[in-house]
Design a protein around this nucleic acid. Structure first.
Lengths: 216, 216
DNA sequence: AAAATAGTGTCTGTGAGACACTATGTT
DNA sequence: AACATAGTGTCTCACAGACACTATTTT
């Protein structure tokens, strides 16, 4: 039995907006924070780079749609983005009324497919205003702020793998923060959430560094 | 000219979810944080108290829909809620696939219409789990967390009016925080964002207190 | 020996938290 | 005088930031 309102109409009788999801998938390459873009195909948009996105189907959750967008548009699997918020300007999409639920994740560069072939990792520091279609510039801006807030803890998304030196951890955090950090302060703020493995790094110049893993 | 995809379809040819907005309108009454509820009317829901909400129309923004929900369901005007996030469980609404974009605001109790008549201010501490329909319990929970984070600054929403004593400010912050605060610490953390008016409170017992207003 | 990186001792400043005291009004 | 509320001096603790030093490795 279908629900009807006081005028006998069902939900299907009312005009509805479309709902899209867009995903800002962040990673760190060459000590710089970057976002995954894919090249659009279609009549008036070839050559346009944008965030992976898709329309929400009626039988899936936002998280499922975000996963599907990553898989279909960028060949990426294995990551579960967080929700950032809804972009709702009435004229944000020329195809009609489309809400976009923005998502974000921060993942190891090694977990992404090879770039080229309509796939690109763009350093966020080099994105100019207006460089992305729709309001994707705003999504990236909010995604970067999300990542910076997240990085009060040591490598919360495990971009470095299980074991790492404090210098490696600091380089990662500097890439996300977008600036240099001081090594003694950094060490003392992070050390509380790290555990020594007991082994030392090998193969570099200078004094070998202790290896740590995340803890607490 | 209407946009068409590669199969010649327009956006209207695809099945879409409905989008609702729900608003957790918080206030402080009797030194306690409370949320505005209204009584639903309709066949199977009379007697059910819920957050004010409505369906998003295709030609309005989420903010406009939130304002409309407050006006039509609760007779409240003059407040602009913030967006909290999207609730998207596939089965959250038995009428069909409905996303809810949750909103929140914190307003002076004096700016609300009289309660009674299907309108109620429920202290959030007294709401039991499962007491509200849909996932409105979760919305209220997130709204309270939002208000607590907001209250790192003195009375950011101006619930006290222009001038107030530090004790009045402390009582407000205790209501939002849901617990007692220490007066000397509270004074010193807030005083930097306050300016003295130069006048004193009148009419109470004990030493008259200086009046302050927000600044910086 | 020189260079490079790892790691720490220590000083300073800030700010929260807590205790106890002083100050000034009403009853 | 007793009480109630306002306001502050001061001690402690924790932590961020900065400087400079020591430690251990490679070249």
């Amino acid at each position: 039995m279908t629900w009807r309102d006081h005028t006998g109409r069902t939900l299907a009788d009312y005009d509805r907006p479309s709902v899209a999801v867009d995903v800002a998938l962040l990673t760190v390459v060459d000590d710089a924070l970057a976002v995954l873009l894919h090249e659009r195909t279609g009549e008036h948009e070839t050559g346009r780079w944008a965030l992976p996105g898709t329309f929400l189907h009626v039988d899936e959750t936002l998280a499922e749609a975000a996963l599907r967008a990553l898989r279909e548009k960028a060949g990426v699997t294995g990551h579960l983005p967080d929700q950032l918020g809804v972009l709702d300007r009435v004229d944000r999409d020329s195809r009609g009324r489309v809400l976009s639920v923005a998502h974000v994740d921060l993942v190891p560069a090694g977990s992404l497919p090879a770039t080229g072939e309509g796939l690109r990792l763009a350093p966020v520091a080099e994105l100019s205003a207006g460089g992305l279609p729709y309001d994707h510039d705003e999504i990236v801006e909010r995604a970067v702020a999300w990542a910076r807030e997240l990085h009060r803890r040591p490598d919360p998304r495990g971009l470095l793998g299980e074991e790492f030196t404090l210098l490696e951890l600091q380089r990662l955090h500097e890439a996300v923060a977008g600036g240099e950090l001081q090594k003694d302060t950094f060490r003392r703020t992070m050390i509380g959430a790290l555990a020594e493995t007991g082994t030392l790094s090998r193969g570099g110049v200078g004094k070998p560094a202790r290896l740590f893993r995340r803890s607490g």
